[in-house]
Write a protein that binds this DNA or RNA. Structure first.
Lengths: 228, 228
DNA sequence: GTTAGCATGTAAGGAGTTACATGATTTT
DNA sequence: AAAATCATGTAACTCCTTACATGCTAAC
């Protein structure tokens, strides 16, 4: 029951929900899917996996399927451990998904939550988006106030740094506004049942409707991979 | 000689270079000046200050000046410790300022460096800005490659998250381009002396020229202060 | 007179990195 | 047959937060 990390635990469970994987692959997916925001090392990931197994959320499958076991039978070949989500793990993840406490609005936590919106029910999505937005608006308030108080004493570079920081936050607010609007637009389709005690129903990705974006993919550029 | 933090050490020395301060004030300035990027707690700051004193970079002045000492003379009044940069501390900070190793291009480290650009020589400023930019460009390369590889398998939300992340990075690159251009424009004024072994001359803030920005201050809104 | 903010600290612990150690498999 | 990359782990260490402990001073 140990209180392992939050973000990492959440992301691992979420990725394994889609399909079983071994540690190495998991790490790559963590660092691209949730990519810009977080990069975990093996020294973090492997111990975490152990803990999740100990909690019963995961099981290890040592080179699993019978066919594969035959490919390398009796040699003392190093195990390739595939992790699979258990029923309890699934349940636990579902519960984490439904939490909308203030933690969920912090930078990195929010990114992790967003990455799994596809598996999140619409009302939770809304709460998270709106929570994030008001968190950012608070932050803007403080920045504005502090700027007004201190702007005389600050040199140009410090000022420029603050200006750029504020603009970044404002930009994210605008992004959230768009997202929230799309979610609202996607609603009304299926008027949420008058039953207000709506239980989160496992696969409740009602795919509201993201703002369909210009599809400018850079030319299929198959280059290196290695994440440092 | 203990290897204390980097960012915090750097920022403390930089702030104290401007004027002596006590811990509480220092913390507030850290969390606004370098603000958006980093928030330190007392549990971090005070021990760090002790270390810096032990290293000889700072000295403590217990309610310092004679006049002030008279205001609260013999009562066992709790000391209000003012920290002042020593000559060695100044020298050390100068040396830190001149470092342009790869660390200086990381997110938070970069922000700290930028915040003290007013006290940094122009060629170092240029190196830091350009280093940061190429760091971000590498990151963009990886993101583009990874997107091209995996885009089919990803759901809309994950895609949207990546798109937004990339846009943020691209935006920062544009910002850096502007800054670099301004620095270059500000050069040519004082053709840097043919003496290439230019020693960083203490106060070498030749204030190149930031892009003068629209001055839209929010109405002087004197509200709350408290950080959390 | 009591709440809020100023001011300084410590101890315990959480979260993650780096560097090390090992070995298998694939590509060049 | 060397180099790269796949694959799994551990130990030591860093950095920072939380929660606690203390007391002063200003404002309401």
């Amino acid at each position: 029951m140990s209180r392992r990390s939050g973000i990492l635990e959440f992301a691992v469970l979420g990725l394994l929900r889609e399909s079983p994987m071994h540690g190495y692959e998991l790490r790559k997916r963590l660092n691209t899917s949730l990519g810009v925001f977080r990069a975990f090392s093996y020294g973090t990931l492997y111990p975490c996996l152990k803990t999740l197994v100990a909690n019963g959320w995961l099981i290890e499958e040592t080179s699993g399927t019978p066919e594969e076991a035959l490919t390398a039978p009796l040699s003392g070949r190093r195990a390739k451990i595939v992790y699979r989500l258990t029923a309890e793990g699934k349940e636990h993840f579902e519960e984490l998904l439904s939490q909308t406490g203030p933690d969920a609005y912090e930078d990195e936590h929010f990114a992790a939550r967003f990455a799994f919106f596809g598996q999140t029910s619409r009302d939770v999505r809304m709460r998270v988006l709106e929570g994030r937005r008001s968190r950012l608006e608070e932050r803007l308030e403080k920045m504005r106030a502090s700027l007004a108080r201190t702007r005389e004493r600050l040199d140009d570079y410090t000022l420029e740094l603050q200006r750029h920081g504020m603009e970044s936050v404002e930009r994210e607010v605008r992004w959230l506004n768009e997202l929230i609007e799309s979610e609202r637009a996607g609603r009304d389709q299926q008027r949420s049942a008058p039953d207000s005690s709506a239980r989160h129903d496992s696969t409740s990705g009602e795919s509201g409707g993201l703002p369909r974006r210009r599809d400018d993919i850079p030319p299929p550029d198959p280059s290196d991979d290695t994440a440092k």
